[in-house]
């Protein structure tokens, strides 16, 4: 055991020295790195071509939206795996939750958490944020409810089947938006070219399909992570 620790420490020391040498080869932090033609194009024309002022959202949901579809599939696979693993674990009946103080406090902050999550989802194309980040906040709300009110109450409020349906319909919304591009004579996941509402860049109703895709991803991530947490905390009966 002790020998293993010493060996690991030496290995990591050697690796770190090698990495220091490798990083020293990178452009030094004082000189400006010249950006690639692709980056210059996105920074120069991104707002005109996508209608979104948040260029990270423009890359995620317009230029590389196909990548994001794959990402959503990875989440779907992970959620499916976790749910499958705990499928036969029934609900533990003795989850009664915390004290009345905690319950009333959650009643007060719960709506604000929900609004914060929805805000980050809906404003994802004009300010930092987006479907993934907002979806995680929405999932946090269900985790708070299951801790404070107990798992039974959370299950009564948000049935797992409802969450599954929400996740699947969000995936369907994403695919519908993607196929609008095909049927309008453009390409798969085409944005403004497919005739989505351009709006005035910087306002909420702008950016074509990007807000729609953000909402789809937000619901998908929120419902998916809520399902993951629900499946994990379900206990087998003693």
């Amino acid at each position: 055991m002790r020998l293993r620790k010493i060996a690991a420490a030496i290995l990591i020391l050697v690796l770190t020295l090698a990495l220091v040498g490798a990083i020293a080869e990178l452009p030094s932090p004082d000189e400006r790195v010249s950006q690639s033609a692709l980056t210059q194009r996105i920074i120069g024309k991104g707002v005109v071509e996508t209608g979104a002022t948040n260029l990270v959202a423009a890359v995620l949901f317009d230029y590389r939206a196909f990548d994001t579809l794959g990402e959503a599939t990875v989440i779907f696979a992970a959620v499916a795996g976790v749910v499958l693993m705990f499928y036969h674990a029934p609900l533990h009946p003795s989850a009664i939750g915390l004290s009345i103080l905690a319950k009333r406090s959650l009643d007060v902050i719960g709506p604000f958490v929900f609004v914060a999550g929805m805000y980050i989802v809906v404003y994802g194309h004009i300010s930092p944020g987006g479907g993934f980040q907002g979806g995680v906040i929405l999932a946090t709300l269900t985790i708070l409810i299951s801790i404070v009110y107990g798992l039974q109450e959370e299950r009564r409020l948000l049935d797992p089947r409802f969450k599954t349906a929400l996740e699947s319909s969000a995936a369907l919304l994403f695919m519908t938006v993607a196929f609008v591009g095909v049927f309008s004579g453009e390409y798969f996941l085409s944005n403004l070219g497919a005739g989505f509402f351009r709006g005035h860049p910087g306002s909420v109703l702008s950016g074509g399909a990007i807000p729609l895709l953000n909402v789809a991803i937000g619901l998908k991530v929120g419902a998916g992570l809520a399902l993951v947490f629900y499946s994990m905390v379900k206990k087998e009966p003693e």
């Binding site: 692709l38 980056t39 996105i42 920074i43 991104g46 260029l55 990270v56 423009a58 890359v59 995620l60 590389r64 990548d67 994001t68 990402e71 990875v74 989440i75 696979a77 992970a78 959620v79 795996g81 976790v82 693993m85 705990f86 987006g130 993934f132 991530v221 992570l225 993951v228 499946s231 994990m232």
Partner: peptide, 23 residues
């Protein structure tokens, strides 16, 4: 913005693998 989008992808994949790992 491209590495930022890539980082976001990596975070999501990391969260998914962590969920499976913990399960």
């Amino acid at each position: 913005p491209i590495p930022h989008a890539l980082t976001l992808t990596a975070i999501v994949i990391a969260a998914s693998t962590t969920a499976l790992m913990l399960s």
